[in-house]
Write a protein that binds this DNA or RNA. Structure first.
Lengths: 210, 210
DNA sequence: ACAATACTTGACCATACAGTCAATAAATTT
DNA sequence: AAATTTATTGACTGTATGGTCAAGTATTGT
């Protein structure tokens, strides 16, 4: 029995099944949350039996953890790309655009993350207080330099990031509300792009007097 | 047996108990979500037995619905106050400040709402597509007038609301993440206030050329 | 004081669900 | 093709939990 994490190298079937289970689990977890999801839902979605799922993962929680671990890497990638030597406003706007695209193309990941944080981040609090905090601190430093050099307006870098995360992920996490409120036929993402671009350019443009 | 919604007028005990149960339920639901909450948790929190809870409410779902119904009223109140005849930028900034204060003082309500919408708004979708949509349409109209009159910059009113909801509620819903990332000793709400005020003033200030 | 009504809860029931196990089937190795 | 290892699942177990019930206690009205 090569159940879940043995030290052996995975077979072809193991790799494929693991992937398809994670894929199905992401579907279900992002819709119903951890507690709202049953292993049977994941099994049905993946087209296998429940014991088969538990042959590849030790528990429901193990699947959840695996998803979150994968998630964090891709989720933070765009932030790393912010380049202090580039043009400040273009760098930030590029980041905003990237985050919005991610909300559009990876809404399941966004919602999984939202559930986790709402819950109090039981699984990823250490990562938030560790990797994320230091990464943000570094980038906040860069932005502080831009401010000090008068290249952008005097704004708090941390709250800048919070506002970007909030405004972009909102379109994934609160998708139902956005579509309920928006006039019929108006595409959320297509119209959000220009709005956010304009908002951050206005916010960051340095004061005339300085 | 005067179980839950009979047509009789409620006794003193009924009013008090109902309130204390809802209070306890808000605590627990906002922390663990609907599925993550058990009636026993609510009972323990409220200091009564489980059957006693079910004496006042027909089901766990009934408690949840009651909370959401209450919530929506208070939640939308600040939006109604936006006054087209007032100063545009001051009206919007007042709204932002009010929403931020609500996130600070009523984080449980914010999280309850977040869970509900993440879930796909199973209980309040009708209200979102009805009351909320029309209210937003009205206020969006007012903002469109301000834009047309050149009093504020050309921005999409709907996305303006989305960004305000996102940025303010973020501090309640993602509280754990905000505190994990923010440098020690820096108060989230105290520092968010000025940031958001500045952001929306920058966004809304009319272009010099127009 | 007495009755009637409102309130409270321990014990219970039925179901849902995470996780196990033994027995079978499919791959893979020899 | 036999042996071995890997994969698969039906049937099962134990527990958690939403909800009921009957039997008691407090409160209120007269």
């Amino acid at each position: 029995m090569a159940r879940s994490q043995t030290t052996k190298k995975p077979t072809r079937i193991q790799r494929e099944k693991t992937r398809s289970i994670l894929e199905a689990a992401l579907d279900v977890f992002s819709d119903f949350g951890f507690r709202g999801t049953t292993i049977d839902m994941i099994a049905k979605r993946a087209g296998v039996s429940k014991p088969n799922i538990l042959y590849y993962f030790d528990s429901k929680e193990a699947i959840h953890k695996a998803l979150l671990a994968e998630l964090l890497e891709t989720w933070l990638a765009p932030l790393q790309e912010i380049d202090e030597s580039g043009d400040p406003i273009e760098e930030i706007c590029k980041y905003v655009a990237q985050k919005l695209k991610m909300a559009q193309n990876y809404p399941r990941e966004s919602k999984l993350f939202a559930y986790e944080v709402l819950q109090g981040a039981p699984h990823i609090l250490p990562e938030l207080e560790g990797d994320l905090k230091t990464l943000v601190a570094t980038k906040a430093e860069a932005i502080a330099h831009w401010v000090a050099a008068g290249k952008i307006a005097k704004i708090d870098p941390h709250h800048l990031f919070f506002s970007i995360w909030a405004t972009t992920q909102h379109y994934a996490d609160f998708d139902i509300q956005v579509r309920a409120v928006l006039p019929d036929g108006k595409d959320p993402f297509a119209t959000a792009g220009p709005f956010l671009d304009r908002m951050y350019r206005a916010l960051l443009s340095p004061d005339p007097d300085s």
